[in-house]
Computed example of a mutant assay.
Amino acid sequence: MGSNESLENLLHSGALKSEPPDRKECEGLMRSATDRLRDASSPQLSFASRFDLAYNAAHAIALTALRLHGYRSDKRYLVFQCLIHTAGLSKLQVRLFALCHERRNLAEYEGYMDDDESLLAQLLSSTQEMLTRIEKALAGWST
């Protein structure tokens, strides 16, 4: 099943909404992601702050990738699951973002945050890679 077909199936199921991409929105999401990713690397911040910044940077980039394909989702986890189709990421990378989503939810809704520096390093690295890919896609996108 091709990328467009997979995304179309999600659209028909109601999981995604069709919405033309908006350059200003995408550029704003990418600016926010870049700032957050830079700040997430600051050793002066607590682990929880760095993780939150890195996770939200990843989400903003993943949402930009989805928006560039003409879709929107209200579900954070789905934005990450679509990365195979919207950013050409591997299943392993998508699983990493899914794990970080679960950890974020534990922290946000149950107050539990395990300081896992290895996970944060992987999140930062994968988010940086995704940032580079989507910056190129955005630069090559014509309105």
Rank of each mutant, 00 (worst) to 15 (best):
L16P: 06
L92I: 03
D35G: 07
E102C: 14
D116R: 06
D74E: 15
E135P: 02
E135W: 00
S73E: 05
Y77W: 13
T127E: 10
S13V: 08
G88P: 02
D35F: 07
H101W: 05
T64S: 03
R104H: 12
E135G: 05
Q122S: 15
Y109Q: 03
T127V: 08
L7V: 04
S13N: 00
C82I: 11
R23A: 04
S18L: 06
V94C: 05
D116A: 00
E5W: 06
G2P: 13
A121P: 05
M1S: 11
N105G: 11
R104A: 13
E27I: 04
A33K: 00
A137M: 14
A40H: 10
E25N: 09
M1F: 09
A40D: 04
W141A: 06
A98H: 03
N56K: 13
L7A: 11
A48D: 13
R104G: 02
T132M: 04
A15Y: 01
K17N: 02
E117F: 05
E5V: 03
H59Q: 07
N9C: 03
R95Q: 11
L99D: 12
H85C: 07
L123G: 12
G14R: 05
W141E: 07
L99S: 14
D115S: 02
E25D: 08
M130Y: 09
A62M: 05
S46D: 02
L119P: 07
I61G: 00
L120M: 15
D116W: 12
G111L: 11
H101L: 11
Q81R: 14
L7S: 00
K136N: 09
A121F: 02
L124Q: 13
L96M: 09
A48S: 12
